[in-house]
């Protein structure tokens, strides 16, 4: 099995020497779908940002698809950040934001062909925002904004997808939509997915592994079934 993400002995300390991540060792295989779970401030967002190079670790090694992080590797990582706030008057349309995914895949100098425009439209259809293609992004609802982020990552054809709480602030219907789309991506694209969630009941059915974090440490990492059987975990989450 090929390794998608390999973190070894990752430490992250702030300037004021507070430990944010302590001794993280983690190997995620290609094709895994990992639910990342833990209380507020556990370090879930931080670990995603370490994986895509937005934050530089204090010590330790990272490899993505067996390579050091570079722009070439980042082109294969799709990132859906925790906060989806857009300036309400931002003069940028949904279509343009989706096209950023293509700019990541092809580089910023390639002109889009008709086929690329078709890809953008098809993807928008798949995630259910086709009618909004020409809408300015600031006008989207929270759920629509999440779908937009997913569409952007889909056209990027990212092999590793990092989703930071894609369900927060969404109503039940929107949550179900996002989970269904995630399942669909997983089946169709065979991508490796890390998805940060707050609630165990929200885990998409495609998830095969669970990473439980607390206080900047990995408390538990393993197959979904094993973790669900684990006493510690049941206590922590009062299952």
């Amino acid at each position: 099995m090929n390794t998608a993400v390999s973190l070894s002995k990752i430490n992250l300390t702030t300037n004021s020497s507070r430990k944010i991540l302590t001794d993280i060792n983690l190997k995620i295989d290609c094709g895994d779908c990992v639910a990342v779970i833990g209380p507020n401030g556990a370090g879930k967002t931080t670990i995603l940002k370490i994986i895509n190079g937005l934050i530089k670790q204090t010590s330790g090694e990272i490899e993505i698809f067996n390579e050091k992080i570079s722009n070439k590797i980042k082109n294969q990582i799709g990132y859906i950040p925790q906060n989806n706030y857009f300036d309400p008057f931002l003069p940028i349309s949904v279509k343009e934001v989706i096209s950023i995914g293509l700019s990541s895949k092809y580089g910023i100098f390639k002109n889009f062909s008709d086929k690329d425009r078709q890809i953008i439209e098809d993807t928008a259809k798949n995630v259910g925002i086709f009618k909004l293609l020409d809408t300015p992004v600031g006008k989207l609802s929270g759920g629509e904004a999440q779908k937009l982020s997913i569409a952007r990552v889909l056209v990027q054809e990212a092999k590793l997808i990092l989703m930071d709480e894609p369900l927060s602030n969404l109503d039940n219907k929107a949550q179900k939509d996002i989970l269904d789309v995630t399942d669909e991506i997983y089946k169709q694209k065979k991508a490796t997915i890390l998805i940060v969630l707050h609630n165990l009941s929200q885990i998409p059915s495609c998830c095969n592994k669970i990473l439980f974090m607390s206080n900047g440490e990995i408390v538990k990492f393993g197959k979904k079934e094993e973790i669900f059987d684990n006493k510690l975990f049941q206590e922590l989450y009062n299952l």
Binding site: G53, N71, N75, G78, P81, V97, I100, F109
Partner: peptide, 23 residues
Amino acid sequence: IIFHKGILAILFNREIARACGIP
């Protein structure tokens, strides 16, 4: 004209642009 795709990406969100490997 030459950099409009890159400019669009950073005007939208610098962090996302950086995360997906746009210079």
